[in-house]
Amino acid sequence: MAELINLLLLGMLAVTALGVVFLKDLFAVVMLFGIYSFLSALIFVNLDAVDVAFTEAAVGAGISTVLMLGTLSLTGRQEKMSGHKTLLPLLVVVTTGAALIYGTLDMPPFGNPENPVHQHVALRYIQDSPQEIGLPNMVTSVLASYRGFDTLGETAVVFAAAIGVLSLLGLPKQDRAAIESGLESHLVLKVVAKIIIPLIILFALYVQFHGDYGPGGGFQAGVIAAAAIILYALVFGLPLATQVVQPGLLKALAALGVLLYAGTGVASFFLGGNFLDYNVLAADPVAGQHLGIILIELGVGITVFAAMLSIFYAFASKAERKNIQ
């Protein structure tokens, strides 16, 4: 049954991808990308990878759709016809694809417990992480402790992306008077937004601090919290949103998150352990692990929140300026 659902979802994934390739209306393409992300999330759920599914749904279908729509409002929604020849790229793509498919022939069968990937470190994580880390959610143990270096790198990538976008587009200034929003008459939207925005922020905090025990963690929580403010900006207008969460604060927060993460590593350094070795943070190694994981997840959450929101601010303020001119 699960295999059948997987096949169905993968088929729908392929159809969506083809739609993305052939459609010329970029607005529809962005929507299809959202559907694509949701389908991937469903496949991940079906594979029992709830954490990944959560991230895919929040980041792929949520934030990146909004960011792409922000880009579309700057670039226009029709795909430009390109004058390039399509034969050579097609040849390259087909050859690469064929080589990749040929490569998969050598791979061990899908889902077999004897596969090398299940015999190496995964076995150790499953056997030892309850004693070493003591978290019910093993994914968080791997992500935040065993693979703490990788996650630090990911957080730095998010931070670097925010820096890149901001140096290209720039943040809006916060001291502008509130101008009329195009959604001024949307009473229903305003009422519902006022009801659900606090709930979304509460949920983000739950995801942030419940990540040790269930699916969730800093990445998802940061994106969800950013989505709450983005919803506020969409309904009540960007100027009001920049007064609630100020762009200058976001710049500081984005750096603060990475600093908190790396600082935890440096602290464990000075307490006599290795970089990001949380055992030394408290008297008891397991308590130290808990403390370290909470700290670095908080750092991840803060950076992701600030980075996503400042990228949205940058796009939205450009679009607003373009509309006014």
Partner: peptide
Amino acid sequence: FVLLTSPTASHALAK
């Protein structure tokens, strides 16, 4: 949550 958001989305879409 869905009962709050889904009709709102439809409303926003139609409007």
